[in-house]
Simulated scan of single mutants.
Amino acid sequence: MQIAGFGVEAWLNEHEREATTDISQSSVAALTLGQVAALDGDDGQALATQLQTVRLDYGWIEGSPEFKRLVSSQYQHVPAANVLQTNGATGANQLAIYSLIEPGDHVIALYPTYQQLYDIPKSLGAQVDYWRLHEERGWLPTLAELKQLIRPDTKMILLNNAMNPTGALLDEAMLRQVVALARSVGAYVLADEVYQPLDDTPFTSVADLYEHGIAVNSLSKTYSVPGIRIGWVATPDATLADRFRKYRDYTMICGGVVSDRLAVQVLRHREKILARNRQIMTTNLAIVKKWVAAEPRAQMVFPRGVPVSCVALDIPLDDETFCLRLLRDTGVLLVPGSRFDLPGHARLGYCTDAQALQRGLRLLSDYLRQFDAKN
């Protein structure tokens, strides 16, 4: 099996520890273990006591009953039995694609978004057609293009909703049209939904719109605990969930009993966490909007309530060279847009600490001034 290098992950693996000001990440500022424990309002004593008595065996293989129930409660049509815990959303995407896609299958992938969603099907021998995003349309695709791409033998449509790195969102009306097209040919629709909006932007999961919808999510992005590596795949289709179970046995055993317990703690207190993260996003997006308005070499289609954004840079060299020099000379880390097949852009993860964001944007602007002197 041949597979392309994973652009964004390779970049971060190599460079994120070099940064002194990291404004590249796509999660809301991570919670500490102490903050998660203290969500009960008792300085973390209850959770600490529970963890002291946890037996470090394999635990619940598919996730504990409470985990599955709490995840199921976020959907209208997904019973707890159809929720399978995974190693983050990357594990859920890999499981669903591995379970369903075979050599010669035809799939359609929203592009460019998260590379995993099109390069894993390619590595399995599928024919992958791209449903392209358009910056001039607010980083949204057109339904007309999807109608041209879909075929009677299309096996799956893969979405990243909301989208990494652009922060765009397919609304319910467009999702319903995607589902109608998929249903007409019997195709699955997989949606990686880890960037569920934090503001009042309406959001509908594909699992609540389509009997063959596959929703992928995790606690990494909008829930601020990427370090526990807990995600899930959810579907209203019991037969499909059983298929995932079979393939899951080959890819993982369990998420780990400690991580599961922490995941339950997060999900129990999801409203507290989302309120905290909503405030971070609102505050920091205002900082970014003010910076873009004042920075002549930056333009942005602003994200739809999600913690990741994509900035267009007016610079006389390629984005990867620029980002490498920026890191070397200032300690500021961005992800080059080329790592997402978006040359001339960079991923700006603006939901970090507000002071770090302001420092990073100031240093970025100062660095951009070198190009003004050459005009």
Rank of each mutant, 00 (worst) to 15 (best):
R183M: 05
V206F: 08
K374V: 11
Q355A: 11
L33Y: 10
Y75D: 09
A238G: 10
I97S: 04
L146V: 15
V301H: 01
W131I: 05
T222N: 10
I150F: 08
C323L: 05
L181N: 12
Y210T: 09
I97M: 04
Y114M: 02
P103L: 07
A37D: 02
G91F: 00
G331P: 06
F302N: 08
V292W: 00
M174R: 02
A81D: 15
A293S: 12
V128I: 13
G125A: 00
P152F: 01
I273T: 09
G256M: 07
A162E: 04
P112E: 04
R248Y: 06
H134Y: 14
L181E: 14
L146K: 03
L100A: 07
V335T: 07
G231A: 06
V266F: 05
G213H: 12
V335A: 00
G360I: 04
S72Q: 14
A207D: 10
A293C: 03
K289T: 08
R17D: 14
N87R: 09
T86P: 01
V194I: 13
A187C: 14
W291R: 03
D242S: 11
T86Q: 02
W60P: 03
M252I: 03
P236T: 12
A10V: 12
H77A: 09
D237H: 11
N93D: 08
R183L: 08
P226N: 07
